[in-house]
Write a protein that binds this DNA or RNA. Structure first.
Lengths: 261, 261
DNA sequence: ACTTGTGAACTATTTCACAGCA
DNA sequence: TGCTGTGAAATAGTTCACAAGT
């Protein structure tokens, strides 16, 4: 339903803001949950709550996609699921290759969230000959030598890198040379790629460091307040102001080492 | 080493932009690498390249921390490493608990990047009795019953959730009740927490969906151009007013199922 | 009576470009 | 001369608040 189609709301299809794109998967998840509960429609208010954003932002986001709601009523859940899926390109099948089947790679291979949207793991690849032939998440791990062939035969355009940092750029280069144009990088390295190739980076330790920053703020605040006798008193004494030392800050040995599953 | 120290440049310590905070770990990583190669100083240009940003942004970012560079010369590597570490709160020790030792949890436990900055895994916790006592990453997995005791005894203020989506909110509530004020959430759920508690979310499938969006753009561009040769017209008949079936959209079974390491 | 869709105001972030210092 | 530090301009993103549909 929804009026949709004939009237082209001007906005459609022309550059959706990056910030909006990043939230579409969030909305999609919330909508999918509603869909499973057979909820027919949602208001921007309800959906926003379920997705953890405010309703003005959600409405603005949707306005970039088109006018898919009905005033006075809300949004048709099924219809919106479809529209967002389509916008994100999830109505098609995306074969992906995963390179580096260590601890993290194995976890990713088992990750249900990949398969549950348009993604399909076409191959698991590891450079370690000892890994070849091992079964991870129901698939045989293949050797890196076959990378190009696999990409070509499966029409892969998205690659996931979960190798140690040292190998990432090299793997990336091969992926790109073989035709991959989008890369999800879990290795703690800055990858350099030619124009036209997208890279997204997930860095586990960075997230923790950001939390530590805010955590320190909280602790510091009360310390200052306590020292100056100011307002907002809130003080679990447990907040050891000056913890132990911290010698280690050792080598950047991030990403899990390869280790058979 | 570097002029620094005595002069306090006005800016210091007052609200550093969130976008800047998010990049500090990036700079820190690049600087650490330089430090290991015993490079004494870097220019904003060089460091920016190593961190994958542009130099104007980097200089602006650093200007929020203070004036730690030397005009005509650059930045003292060791000094900057220290200043950024301090700013991020990494000069102190942060004990963390990890809840949910499935595939992903095990990978995280083995992740070198945690230990290599101020973080220390104080405990691995899983609700599955079959996991208790098992050794993962050199630590005994403990049962969820002991959560509160562990948090209290170790002064933990940061928790990592790697449980299935269904258990996440419940785990979160217990963490918060026990005194945790920062949470890194790997479960594909929106967590609700009281004011004063920070949550950061890492969602593997969201990142892939964002890539798919851009990937589709690339492909679509040429396809549409080829098909319509014209300008603004966009008329994929596919605009099925009433979505097709769209079967799969299966259960939101994200996050890896628990499975012994 | 209710809820969307959206200009307009506001806030945050990035980029420019150059004065100021080593 | 070379490179930082930073106002000022440009751009991106968010929030407000209300007109317009249903």
């Amino acid at each position: 339903m929804a009026t949709g189609r004939t009237h082209r709301p001007a906005t459609r299809s022309r550059g959706i803001p990056e910030a909006t794109v990043a939230r579409l998967p969030l909305y999609l998840r919330a909508l999918t949950a509603l869909s499973e509960r057979s909820v027919p429609t949602v208001s921007s208010e309800e959906l926003a709550a379920a997705a953890g954003v405010n309703s003005a932002k959600l409405r603005k986001d949707f306005s970039y996609l088109g006018s898919y709601g009905t005033r006075g009523v809300g949004y048709d859940v099924e219809y919106l699921v479809y529209q967002i899926s389509r916008e994100l390109g999830l109505t098609q099948d995306w074969p992906i290759v995963m390179v580096g089947i260590g601890n993290l790679g194995a976890a990713l291979a088992n990750y249900g969230g990949f398969a549950s949207r348009g993604f399909r793991v076409a191959a698991l690849i590891d450079a370690d000959p000892a890994m070849s032939g091992k079964t991870v998440a129901g698939m045989q791990v293949q050797h890196a030598d076959d990378l190009e062939k696999i990409i070509d035969e499966n029409g892969v355009s998205i690659g996931v890198i979960a190798t140690p940092a040292g190998a990432a750029q090299q793997v990336c280069d091969r992926l790109v040379a073989a035709g991959v144009t989008s890369i999800l990088n879990f290795a703690p390295t800055v990858l350099s790629v030619p124009d036209g190739v997208d890279v997204r980076k997930v860095d586990l330790s960075i997230e923790l460091q950001i939390l530590a920053f805010h955590e320190q703020r909280k602790a510091g605040e009360s310390a200052i307040e306590a020292a100056e006798g100011a307002v907002g008193v809130e003080g679990p004494a447990a907040k050891v102001t000056k913890p132990t030392a911290n010698d280690r800050k050792g080598p950047d040995g991030d990403v899990p080492a390869v280790m058979p599953a």
